[in-house]
């Protein structure tokens, strides 16, 4: 771990302050299948952190652990210095109540591979929903903010459309706007472009690039090596539940050290 991390720390930006996400020996099993076998990594504020690897390597599972959609079986996971899903008093861990977990999730935006927009609401209503229901924002304010966000992702003219009336790329941009409406300090992207037609990938990546430039901390599970190389500050290659290699994306992608990384990249690049 330590060797990887030191390489990582020199990669970019100011290394001081609490890391946005810190994983220490994170394990996760589904029944007898161990999906994560001890993940250690650190994501600093304002960093664009890319996770790559073959399917089944545990990237998505790890991402879902960060906002406690999955429970970690062993190890510790911290977001902004706070333990995810538990409270530690002395050497005992107490499970957090659902309402406390929900409170923490407010600050973590998540974008899914299959968009998961609410199909019975228009694009605008999708973006307005959480601020009104969770933060108690007034309808007028939520509408104003949602309109701004839709404009930001280039969909101001689609506000009144239902998700079924939007293309995949448009849906995913609405999903990004929906996550941003909660003013998160961290954004998780779970293969945001994998379900899209190649032609539509660019629009979504543009929005993400714009977001990265605005200083958002982003963890991106992706197969878009071009995006990782251009926008990413650090990159981790995962396989079979462990971190195989990590470092600056440009170094790892052009000059992988591990044999496993080399064989994976030779297939996808």
């Amino acid at each position: 771990m330590s060797a990887d991390m030191t390489k990582n720390a020199t990669a970019a930006g100011s290394g001081s302050g609490t890391p946005m996400v810190k994983a220490e020996g994170v394990h996760k099993s589904f029944g007898p299948v161990e999906v994560l076998k001890g993940i250690d990594l650190e994501v600093r504020p304002s960093e664009v952190f890319c996770l790559i690897g073959p399917s089944g390597s545990g990237k998505s599972t790890f991402l879902r652990c960060i906002n406690h959609l999955e429970k970690v079986n062993a190890g510790r996971l911290y977001v902004d210095g706070e333990l995810v899903g538990y409270r530690q008093r002395g050497d005992k861990l107490y499970e957090l109540k659902d309402s406390e977990v929900a409170l923490k999730r407010r600050d973590i935006g998540m974008v899914f591979q299959r968009f998961n927009l609410f199909p019975h609401m228009t694009a605008l209503e999708n973006v307005m929903e959480a601020p009104i229901q969770v933060k108690g924002v007034s309808k007028a304010k939520a509408r104003e903010r949602a309109t701004q966000l839709l404009e930001r992702v280039g969909l101001a003219d689609k506000a009144g459309n239902y998700p079924s009336q939007l293309s995949g790329g448009q849906q995913q941009r609405v999903a990004i706007a929906r996550a941003l409406a909660m003013d998160p300090k961290l954004m998780l992207f779970d293969e945001p472009t994998s379900a899209l037609d190649p032609e539509l990938v660019g629009d979504v990546l543009d929005v993400m690039r714009d977001l990265a430039e605005s200083g958002m901390t982003m963890i991106v599970v992706t197969h878009e090596m071009g995006f990782a190389r251009e926008v990413g500050d650090s990159l981790v290659f995962m396989d079979e539940g462990v971190v195989v290699e990590s470092g600056n994306p440009r170094d790892v992608l052009t000059n992988p050290q591990q044999e496993r990384t080399q064989s994976f990249l030779s297939k996808v690049l």
Binding site: N67, L69, A102, L103, K104, R105, R106, I108, G109, M110, F112, N116, L117, F118, E129, A130, Q133, V134, A175, R178, A179, M182
Partner: peptide, 8 residues
Amino acid sequence: EASHALGM
């Protein structure tokens, strides 16, 4: 999941 992830 999407709804929970938004903190609902």
